[in-house]
Design a protein around this nucleic acid. Structure first.
Lengths: 347, 347
DNA sequence: CTGAAAGCGCTTACAG
DNA sequence: CTGAAAGCGCTTACAG
């Protein structure tokens, strides 16, 4: 005799009520936030709601009909870097018929935001996944999303890959190595590095690529040639000023972002140095900026649009309950040689 | 004796059924797209649904709870112009707790999209307003939104202001006039104009500002100095090539966008002309690009972020059922003098 | 194809 | 504070 294993039916109010040992009206009151419910009862009901994963008809409908929606929190909207990623995400979203909600939480508020509320609000609005760009959440914050089955994918995460979230990045180490090797192959030996924020994993990886290239060529690293500050133009200006004040200034600079390289270019000009004749310069990112400067900027291009697409694809797969081939994906960078690098002047 | 005027109650299935002369189950079938309903009946029911403005409980709930959401369709995401506007919209959206859905329809698809379906989908997802950036819809397309009470605000509309939609722009005529007067005051008389697409109202206004300035100084316009093509760098290159081939080339160029001005700069350099010594140049938009070129670009700044904010503010007011002070708003431009303009060489 | 009847799941009004 | 009872609005199953 076959015992029919009862399929776990979708929970309705009555199911929850039974589990919590109360009546349906009481559950209804808890759900609707009425205050005529004893605290102890409320807690028991809430436990039952969570355990059964109760969804109101509205929520179920929101989840099953209408277009898929994902949230996107993008850091520093105004940069070309962000724009490229955004373009990639929106292109793919349009093709897939997915809607992207941008800016419900600003990056500045990301740290202080109430992630429980945010996740809850996403559920209620039928939003199914979250993409973060160069932002980070604590494990505890991620839990708010994990508990509600909202997948999170981070593009260019600030922290090293960790359990519980997926990420998309570029081959930062290889890119940093390639940039530096290009300068070495031109004959430079005094090569400085202007890095991003210390906390940024991607910048650390670029630095180590730089160090690996130096080491591979038997060139000793000089601490005074390695400065970190941020991916900004301002830091490019300041860093360059500092480097040019050295007794033995570098003949080449590898800037960990194109924006920083722009600052280098400007400050070099202030000092009467011509790029690439007096100073070679390699940027990182490969934003349209590289074509707008004079000279045009040699830069390690990140496949930013592809990274955006890959992140959205990953979120959508996770939403459908599929597994990712790999939780952490690195897309290949490519050194694009333009006009800002040349052999060093013979000293 | 007071006759109670019956307040028009919110329509439920039964109300619609009564009006259509059918039963509630039949209305239910129509709403849910069942095919066991006679065509004539279906039409009668649909008419009743529209007339009463019936909303399902789900729709009502979606409309009344959760954050306000608006759709945003932005043309040419990758340009700095679009970015500035987007930043303004997102800043204000974050402050107001409004969510912005970007990219459910790409601009290319805007013309061919099924606006009925789109509007319906917006209603179903609880989206309440629509902002278009430099795009346009036909009156018939706008009707799809108007019928459903979805307000539409256009930023920098391609067509002149029209009944039925609201718009936010900049003082293009005044800006064009100011740019040209700046060049005139430096002593230029041979001033060319490189305009955007012919269809673009904002470019036409800039052209007429240019013409007004010339006329005000008693200078005759020369047809060969007036070229229109697009707001692109490519057109800046081509237009400049054409202008420099003239027997009497201009000593100054007013480009109707910064991107176009960038092309002018590049092509002038190809011809060995120095800016501003040999050729003065004024751009339009005031994007960050103006600070990145060498020389830095004198440009008529549009308050792009403010325009974004104003557009969202307008949509939200319309959503609340408030009146706008004016359906069409122009925010002030400002000529920012940088390094790309100087008196003409003495010929 | 249509609708009376039954049913579903949530909410409201109110007695205790 | 709780829940039996009534009610609401939509949907389903089925008789004609």
């Amino acid at each position: 005799m076959v015992r029919a294993e009862k399929v776990r039916a979708k929970p309705v109010l009555a199911t929850v009520a039974a589990l919590a040992g109360v009546s349906a009206p009481t559950v209804s009151k808890v759900i609707n936030g009425r205050d005529d419910v004893a605290e102890a009862t409320r807690l028991r009901v809430q436990a039952a709601l969570t355990e059964l994963g109760y969804e109101s008809p509205m929520q179920r409908r929101a989840r099953s009909t209408g277009p898929d929606m994902v949230d996107l929190v993008i850091d520093g909207m105004a940069t070309q870097y962000s724009m490229e990623i955004l373009t990639g995400i929106l292109d793919y979203a349009a093709a897939e018929g997915v809607d992207v909600v941008v800016g419900s939480v600003t990056p500045a508020k990301l740290q202080t935001a109430n992630h429980e509320e945010w996740a809850q609000r996403m559920i209620e609005s039928g939003r199914k996944g979250l993409i973060l760009v160069t932002s980070e959440m604590t494990t505890r914050q991620l839990d708010s999303f994990a508990q509600r089955n909202i997948p999170v994918v981070v593009i260019d995460p600030l922290n090293p890959p960790r359990q519980g979230f997926s990420s998309v990045g570029a081959t930062n180490w290889a890119g940093g190595k390639e940039a530096t090797e290009h300068l070495l192959s031109l004959g430079h030996t005094r090569i400085a590095f202007l890095g991003g924020p210390n906390a940024a994993e991607c910048s650390v990886a670029r630095l180590h690529g730089y160090l690996a290239a130096l080491m591979g060529h038997g060139i000793k690293q000089r601490p005074e040639y390695i400065l970190t500050g941020g991916f900004t133009k301002t830091f490019g200006v300041e860093g360059t000023r500092q480097l040019l004040a050295l007794d033995e200034p570098p003949t080449a600079i590898f800037a960990a972002s194109d924006a920083t390289a722009l600052g280098v270019l400007e400050e070099a000009r202030q000092h009467g140095l011509r790029v690439p004749d007096d100073l070679s310069l390699v940027g990182f990112d490969g934003t349209p900026l590289t074509e707008q400067t004079l000279p045009r900027l040699t830069s390690v291009a990140q496949p930013l649009q592809e990274m955006g697409r890959a992140a959205l694809r990953a979120v959508l797969r996770l939403v459908k309950g599929e597994e990712l081939d790999s939780a952490h994906m690195e897309l290949a960078t490519e050194l694009v040689i333009r006009d800002s690098t040349a052999p060093p002047r013979v000293a």
